[in-house]
Each structure stands twice: as structure tokens, then as C-alpha cells.
């Protein structure tokens, strides 16, 4: 690891000021589970680090009439056990419960987790070609071991999978992130936060280098109760997804689906909303066939690599199972 300058400003204002005057290559450090890890691997080499991990302004979970407000500095573990979130936004709680280990959830912040980097093994090995890490060097995964790579949203330059779970559930619930920077505060719908690799795989999100996520807002929805996050992995716990799905449903007294939310994880280069799949469920009773069809629609545009085609069928079944579980919870 290369040396870096370290500061830990004591307020958000001080962070913003530090970001304003920051030298090139400055990075924001929160829980450390991504940035510090990648620094150890030589994948990240910031010249300076601004530590925000204990800013009191970034903590706190509150519930208003219209939304759930999560401080960006809240630790992941505090969400999965939260007495309101668990019943009202089950998929949110489950997405965190199935992410990483409790130790890492005690460290990682929500804001940092949204910007978690890919687990592509070629990206994480600084000796390998990687367009994301070293533009123009090529993508080692395309002709390599691409079992965990993205089926949706890849470009000819990069198929690295977005690895997070929490953002998938947030996306399903139309969450918004509030960010601050030297140009003031702005709000970004989660759906617009992450970008596909396209021609520039380095760019993973729309935040400027001098912007800081301060909070996440999740609109209240009845679909939160009828929701689930299903994650299929190579082991029962403590592994990244081969496929995952966040599903939230509202079903009326006549058994008709009136609200439908589906987002996919572990299969795309960014958190992936399956809008057409959602729509396919609306206005009709929830059946096994409808759940399966939603999965098929969600993966209609999937493009497999050399060794990961099975994850299309796995993804379809994951969506179908999650839809069925959400449906059972919605009518409970």
C-alpha cells in the first residue's frame, strides 16, 4: 500500500470543505471494507483519504409519514435488526442480513455499501488486465473465468457484476440518495445513481469526486410488507450472489396484484430494475406461471458469457421464487 494523507474532519461542512480543496486522487473513507481492502490489494491508491466513518450527522434512522430516512453513516447491521424496518421493509432488512458477515456489517456504512466495488477477481488482482482499473488494458474476464460475471448491462469493455445487495432492495423501493458537495446538496434517485460500464468502465456512478452521500430516503409503501430479498450463493452464507432478487408486492382483497416491484442483484453491472417484469404481474392474480413469466421477462435481455449461461435460468427461478414468497407475505 502506498502512503496517503489522512484527515478525519469533525463535521459534514468540514468534509465538504476538505473535498473542495482536495488534491487529485483523494478518496472518502467510511467503514473501510471496500476502500481499505482495495488499497491493500493495490487496486486503489488514493493520495489522500478523508475519513467520514464517525460523523454524527450521518447517523440515525428515522421514520416519517412518508418515508424512511437512513443516515449514510449508519452501519449495515443496524438496519437488519431495526424494529420498524424488519416488518415494514422486509426486503431491505433481508438484503443486509444476507450480505457479508455480521463483523463486516458492523463496519460497513450504508453510503459506502451503495458504492461497493465489484468482486470481479480480475479487477481485484492488480496484475491482471482490466479496463475498469486500467483503461485500455483489456478485459481479462471476457475470455477468462466469467462464471460470476454480469448477464445484463455489460459492454464490450467490462462485464463486472455489481456486488451489493442493499442497493437492489433500495432500487425496488424507489429510494433516493441525498448528496452534498461544494456546489450544495442534491438528490439522486437510486435508479440513476449507478451507471453501466459502456465506453468507460471506470465510471460506476454519477457522483462527482467531491460529493458525499449523507442520507438515503425510502418512500413508504405497502409493498414493503409484502417483500423479500432472495439471494442464491455457492454456500449458505457469507458469499456473493450468483443471482438475487428483491421483490415487493401489494395484492388486494380480490387477490389481484396492484403494485409490483422487482430488482435484480448479482447478475448485472448495476442494480437492475426489471420494469417489464413488474408490469407483467399487475392487474391479475399471482400464479406460479405468472411468477415464472416475470422471471423470464426480467432476463429476456440477458447475454451470457462463456461459462455463466446457467445463471439466466437460475436468475429466472430466483425471481419466480421471490415473487411467490413476496406474494405470500403480501396476503398475510
Amino acid at each position: 500500500m502506498k502512503p496517503f494523507a489522512y484527515t478525519a474532519p469533525s463535521s459534514v461542512d468540514a468534509v465538504v470543505e476538505a473535498l473542495r480543496v482536495a488534491q487529485p486522487g483523494t478518496k472518502i473513507l467510511a467503514g473501510g471494507t471496500t476502500l481499505y481492502d482495495l488499497m491493500k490489494l493495490g487496486v486503489e491508491a488514493p493520495s489522500a483519504v478523508i475519513d467520514v466513518h464517525r460523523l454524527p450527522e450521518l447517523t440515525g434512522i428515522s421514520v416519517t409519514d412518508s418515508e424512511l430516512v437512513l443516515g449514510a453513516g449508519v452501519r449495515m447491521a443496524d438496519v437488519s435488526d431495526h424494529p420498524v424496518i424488519r416488518p415494514s421493509y422486509t426486503a431491505l432488512a433481508e438484503s443486509i442480513w444476507r450480505a457479508a458477515s455480521q463483523q463486516l456489517r458492523n463496519m460497513a456504512t450504508l453510503g459506502g455499501n451503495l458504492l461497493q466495488r465489484t468482486r470481479c477477481g480480475y479487477f481485484r488482482d492488480a496484475d491482471m488486465p482490466c479496463n475498469k482499473r486500467n483503461p485500455g488494458s483489456g478485459c481479462a474476464a471476457m475470455e477468462g473465468v466469467d462464471r460470476p460475471h454480469a448477464l445484463l448491462g455489460a459492454s464490450s469493455l467490462c462485464s463486472a457484476t455489481y456486488a451489493g445487495d442493499f442497493a437492489i432492495a433500495l432500487l425496488a423501493f424507489d429510494a433516493v440518495v441525498d448528496v452534498v458537495g461544494p456546489r450544495g446538496e442534491r438528490s439522486i434517485p437510486l435508479a440513476e445513481l449507478h451507471v453501466e460500464p459502456g465506453e468507460d468502465p471506470r465510471r460506476e456512478h454519477v457522483l462527482d469526486v467531491d460529493e458525499l452521500i449523507v442520507r438515503i430516503r425510502v418512500p413508504l409503501t405497502e409493498a414493503g410488507r409484502g417483500s423479500t430479498y432472495l439471494k442464491i450463493r455457492d454456500r449458505e452464507s457469507y458469499a456473493f450472489a450468483l443471482a438475487s432478487a428483491a421483490v415487493g408486492l401489494v395484492i388486494d382483497g380480490a387477490g389481484i396484484v396492484t403494485e409490483s416491484r422487482i430488482a435484480l442483484g448479482g447478475v448485472a453491472t448495476r442494480p437492475w430494475r426489471a420494469v417489464e417484469a413488474e408490469q407483467s404481474l399487475l392487474g391479475q392474480p399471482l400464479t406460479a406461471a405468472a411468477a415464472r413469466r416475470a422471471g423470464e421477462i426480467a432476463f429476456a435481455a440477458a447475454r451470457p458469457g462463456r461459462t455463466n449461461e446457467f445463471r439466466i435460468e437460475l436468475g429466472i427461478r430466483t425471481v419466480a421464487d421471490a415473487v411467490r414468497t413476496a406474494g405470500e407475505r403480501a396476503v398475510r
Partner: peptide, 20 residues
């Protein structure tokens, strides 16, 4: 293309965890 072994971490070489 590169030689040696590729999945040289406890993440990519998935040994059994407690839940298994």
C-alpha cells in the same frame, strides 16, 4: 493465459462455513 492458480482467496476458494 496467465498460469498459476486464479481463485487464491478465501472468498473465491469457498471453504465450508458454519451455515453449510
Amino acid at each position: 493465459r496467465v498460469g498459476g492458480f486464479l481463485n487464491t482467496t478465501l472468498e473465491e476458494y469457498p471453504v465450508m462455513v458454519n451455515a453449510d
